[in-house]
Design a protein around this nucleic acid. Structure first.
Lengths: 382, 382
DNA sequence: CTGAAAGCGCTTACAG
DNA sequence: CTGAAAGCGCTTACAG
């Protein structure tokens, strides 16, 4: 039943096409019909439009591409109408092959082996914004998980990408990219502190964000302040935040205690476990600066499980100002990044590069802001 | 400084290429060098490999595409080595143009005008899983926001997509798709209840999910149960859940009270506002079934603000089992969908269709499960 | 097992 | 303002 309907729809659609199809057959000689089935279905090409309009391919091409100066207003009108009527859509692969540009931008995201892409909420927003900016500029976006190093190059090459955004890679991965890998793709590395001149860099002021959080905590009167984040000994975003933490500590004459800096994964579960441990092992700590909201929220729950309340006993500052931050009680004090700015700058840098401009000397660094809510207060008295 | 480094890298890379480039110039006559700059950079083609190996284009093509039977083991070896050495990556656009298939799948998501894609957490997971499945099958994924109806067709056509997944569209949008729009693209409509035979449908058992939630609530002893979700008068997912709600009510001999079914947006803020209103206007309500976790969490906060506790005074059941559900206190009782199953089925249907199999008679419907946590309990006594 | 020819649907770089 | 030719890098459908 359903299949019958399906076939009916197809048949109706094919009706229109059939006559031109038949005549094509007779003039061009027999070619296995199924071989060109798809072509026949999707089929309106520049050539078709040109034939109907009685002009050359070139003229239609010029009209479609808006090279107005090259075509008279009259023929332009006529062609535009035909294009609309026949539902002509240019073939992007043909364009990409013939022209220098594919108008295709890759969004490359790390993928761990066989597991699926884990795009954190923070990244998702950036993806959505990138897509919009790029769509406005008439670029298309290709989403690709990268599980082996060589896949980056493959991705750039095979689809002849004009640009690509690297989202969430370690600095070392960016560092290792060579000119042979990159070719002339306009490559933007987001949140990277790599010095690789082949990549354009857009990031937040991570060092400054940590300073903001720490100054707030210190201003509130805290002295025993812990730090929690993933892999902060590496270079990169987390390292910067760690350095910001240490700098404020040093500025206050507070000695850095390595026992108070913990490597904690960016998950709720890891945060929870860390909270329990912290309460047990370091009861002297009155505040924690974390590098992610989700970690902070887990931490707060872990602290609560150990009988320590936030912000009464311990103050907590998160990072990212995720939606999540206002769903929990008390609402999370956190550092907000300028996500729209990040996306916009990434696209701007890419387009500048594509337009042949020189790479800027400095990486683009976006401002951050402290959002004071309910999880940071003065330390408990006594 | 940075620019100098950049140039240096480029120069080093170009070194290798330069000699073949020069000879090409002299034999082929002068062509504006910059015109072919990009080609020169990315440049290893089938032809290059064929020339180096001393065989024809076709032979290399056969090797690269794994048509083993057609090439002797010896030449295959030699060619494989060259391909590796020279870092040959096939041009996807050339393939797409020459062959019947682009190995490109579109991920089409509604975009409201100029605003950026809003991909809810639930959708993000599906995207990640789709990407992985598709990548394993050697397909690429194109992410595209759709703001006008015609853009669906444009997207399918311009990149000659083999398949596409429609994520988050209203049923009416799916309904209106014609064979001319779809062509022979393998189209999967996720979470759609459209009857359009041109789309393959994958969804959860939304009706059953509502039944599960409602039976739980009824079993706990509730009788005044409210329903909250967006646009449930439309067809589609939310409508199905609404019907499930009504069916259980009817089964229990409880009269449906339209005043207890509220149209509430799927946001925390809307949930919060709804919670306040519900507490004020319908103090008799002892339980609420909502169509989204985020709404449920807002609702719980609104209820709390009005002095009503969950689950003491009011029970709440969410939907989706978002990560969020366990971050709040008390943890959310909710209905979980089989997200990996959804992604896997979508890909399976698409591949079957691409392999020429008939469209299945039935839409694929995935099982749901009730996750009992802390927000649903017996109604207050008295 | 191997290859020469034609063509996919466009754009580029010209010449008129 | 308009168009004929060459070519982008592949695959298809053959013929040997």
């Amino acid at each position: 039943m359903v299949n019958a309907l399906h076939m009916l729809g197809l048949a109706l659609y094919l009706g229109r096409k059939l006559s031109s199809w038949m005549s094509h057959l007779s003039t061009a000689g027999y070619r296995h019909p199924l071989a060109r089935w798809k072509g026949a279905l999707l089929g309106v090409t520049l050539k078709d439009i040109a034939a109907e309009a009685g002009v050359s391919l070139m003229t239609v091409s010029n009209v479609v591409n808006g090279k107005q100066a090259r075509v008279s207003a009259a023929t332009r009108e006529r062609i535009m109408r035909l294009v609309k009527e026949r539902g002509y859509v240019p073939s992007a692969s043909a364009r990409s092959l013939a022209a220098r540009s594919s108008r295709l931008v890759g969004l490359l995201v790390p993928a761990v082996g066989e597991s699926s892409l884990t795009i954190d909420p923070h990244t998702v927003e950036v993806v959505g914004m990138l897509e919009r900016e790029l769509r406005r500029l008439d670029y298309h976006l290709m989403l690709r998980g990268i599980s082996r190093r060589g896949e980056i190059t493959e991705a750039l090459r095979s689809w002849n990408l004009d640009g690509a955004v690297l989202l969430g890679f370690n600095d070392v991965v960016i560092d290792r990219l060579t000119a042979a890998d990159v070719g002339d793709v306009a490559l933007v590395a987001m949140d990277s502190y790599s010095e690789n001149p082949l990549a354009l860099e857009v990031r937040s002021d991570d060092f400054g964000g940590a300073e903001l959080a720490m100054r707030h905590l210190v201003g509130l009167g805290h002295e025993r302040i812990a730090f929690a984040g993933p892999a902060f000994s590496d270079t990169g975003v987390v390292r910067q935040r760690f350095e910001g933490y240490r700098k404020v500590l040093a500025g206050q004459g507070i000695a850095f205690d390595p026992a108070l800096a913990s490597e904690v994964e960016t998950t709720h579960a890891a945060g929870l476990e860390y909270g329990r441990r912290l309460a047990a092992e370091h009861p002297e700590v009155t505040a924690v600066f974390t590098t992610a909201d989700i970690l902070a929220i887990g931490l707060i729950e872990g602290l609560a499980a150990a009988g320590r309340s936030v912000p009464g006993d311990v103050s907590v500052v998160g990072y990212d100002n995720a939606d999540l931050a206002v769903y929990v009680t008390p609402k999370l004090t956190t550092v907000a990044q300028d996500l729209p700015g990040k996306a916009a700058e990434a696209v701007r840098l890419m387009m500048d590069r594509l337009a042949g401009k020189d790479r800027p000397e400095q990486a683009v660094s976006l401002d951050v802001a402290l959002i004071e809510r309910g999880t940071a207060g003065p330390p408990p008295v006594g």
